[in-house]
Structures are given as C-alpha cells and as structure tokens.
Amino acid sequence: MNFVEAVAIGAASVAAGAINAVVGSGTLITFPTLVACGFPPVLANVTNNIGLVPGVLSAAYGYRRELRGQRRRLLRFGAASLIGGLTGALLLLQLDSAAFDTVVPVLILAACALVLLQPRLNAWLRKRPERGGADGGVPLWCGVLGTGVYGGYFGAAQGVLLMGLFGSFLRDDLQRLNAAKNVLAAIVNGAAAVVFVAVADVDWAAAAVIAAGSTVGGLLGAKVGRRLPAMALRVVIVVVGVTAATVMIIT
C-alpha cells in the first residue's frame, strides 16, 4: 500500500463510517476501494471488516441518546447477531476463495438494490404508529440471526436488512431503530473480527487506515448524517458498487 492508495483508502473509510451510521452500506465504498488497490477479495473483505469495527462503534456511541430504554431489545437480538457474525466469518474462511469471488458481485448488486429501496422502507416505517410493539418473537430473532450470518460473511447493506426486519416486526421511532441497528452491526462486525484476527491473514496497515477514517466518519455521520442529502449518498454507493461488481465479473 503506497501513499496514494493510503489516501484513497482513508477517504473511502471516512465516507464509509458516515454512511454506515446513516444508511448502513459503507462496505460498498471501502471494499471496492481495497480491491481497486490490488487487494485479493478475501483479504480485502477481512481487512475491511476489522477496520470498520471502530467506525460502527463510534456510530453507535453517536446514537447513545436513542439507545436509552432498549437494553432488553439489544440483549435479545445481540445474542442472535453474535452467533450470526461468528458463523458468517467461519463460513468465509471455510469456503473456497473462488466461491467468494463468484458470489460477491451478486451480493454487491443485491446490496445496491437494497440501498435504492431504502427510501421506500423509511417512508413506510414513518407511517407506522410510533409505539412500543412486541419483540417480534422467534421469526424476528431468526431474521436477525440470518442477517448476522450475512454480515459476518460479507456485510454490505446488513443495516438495510436489519431496518427492514425491524420495520416488519417492531413499532418504534425510526431513529431508535436505527440506533439499535448500529449496535447490532457493531456486534456482528466485532464477532467476525475476532475470528479473522485469530486465524485469517490481515493487512494491518490498511486496517489501521480504515479504522481511523471510519471512526471519524461514524461520529460525523451520527452527528450530521440526518442533514446530508441521502439520495446523493445512495447514488455514490450504487455507482461504486455496480462498478466494482462489473469489474469483478469481467475479470
């Protein structure tokens, strides 16, 4: 990683941290950047996951006011996220790297589609009564578990998936649900990172750059993210994601 690549990765990381706090798709910025800098896909995914952990933690901290009164919810779904994140990370390391190279473009394009659909999801969520609902029972817990497996394996747009699940099963303020989403994403990324640190190859220099940039971005996103033009963010995410998927399919 030379100086120019470090600057590019750092800038992408700041953007990813902010996007994760607000939209939940920062991986679609940092992962393609790493691949463009010559990182093999699996190494890029592992390094990216570890680097983004401080960013999602800072985003969760930025939403700490909205987390009040959600301890029971976070403990319940945090367990599912922990199990899912560990499972997804182990799947990434156990499956052949060629399988990852094949499935990632599909996952990226699917994540881009989810990002584009999120405005409709948010509009639907806002129309729902803002009152405490049930805990979603076993179906929601299993949905969070499945999202955790996906997040540990790749992770792009896992926040969008979580918001979709919450909107389907819970009735609460949108910002409170977004705060819970940030905590669960941090648990998934953190669990996967523990596995990767223990047994996988990591580019620690790139991970450090991503960690620093995403931490700054996470705090900025939590503070001013609601004022940013959401559509502009989505356009950037989709353009970068589709370009990365196309390049990976061609090559």
Rank of each mutant, 00 (worst) to 15 (best):
L174K: 08
F166H: 02
T27P: 01
F166Y: 00
L95Q: 12
A232I: 14
V202E: 05
R65V: 15
R64L: 10
G55T: 10
V183P: 01
G78S: 09
Q94A: 14
S81T: 14
A191F: 05
I9D: 03
R71T: 09
Q118H: 10
A113K: 08
V202T: 04
A15F: 09
V14G: 04
A211T: 11
F100V: 13
S81A: 14
T87K: 00
L174G: 00
G136F: 01
S81H: 05
A206Y: 07
Q118Y: 01
S168V: 13
N189S: 09
Q158F: 13
V35K: 03
V183I: 08
A179E: 03
R72A: 12
L116D: 07
W124Y: 13
A232N: 14
N122R: 13
L165T: 05
A8Q: 15
G62V: 00
G78Y: 02
V115I: 07
G221E: 09
L57A: 08
G225A: 07
I19Y: 03
N49L: 12
V35M: 03
V149S: 00
A59C: 08
G17R: 06
R131G: 13
S13V: 15
V56Y: 10
I250S: 02
P32A: 14
A193Y: 00
V183Q: 01
G132L: 13
A198R: 02
V235M: 09
V14K: 05
A110Q: 09
P40C: 02
G136R: 02
K181R: 06
L162I: 02
T147W: 03
R120A: 11
S25D: 11
L109Q: 05
V56P: 12
V202I: 08
G167M: 00
N2L: 15
V235L: 09
A185D: 06
A179I: 01
A191P: 04
R65E: 15
V14I: 14
L52N: 10
M163G: 05
G155F: 01
V236H: 08
M231I: 15
G152H: 02
P40Y: 00
N189R: 01
V216L: 05
Q94W: 14
A11L: 14
A44L: 06
C142Q: 13
L174W: 12
T246G: 02
N178W: 11
P105H: 07
V197W: 14
A180T: 07
T27K: 09
T215W: 04
P54K: 00
R65F: 15
F31P: 06
G151H: 06
G10E: 09
P41V: 15
I50R: 09
V183Y: 08
A8P: 14
A245L: 05
D101Q: 14
G78Q: 06
A205F: 13
Q175N: 14
I249F: 01
Q94D: 15
V236D: 09
F100T: 08
V199R: 07
I187V: 10
N48K: 05
V46W: 02
A206W: 05
L43K: 08
G152P: 07
N20W: 08
V104R: 00
G136M: 05
V7K: 12
L86V: 13
E66Q: 10
R120D: 11
A59H: 09
I108R: 03
A222E: 14
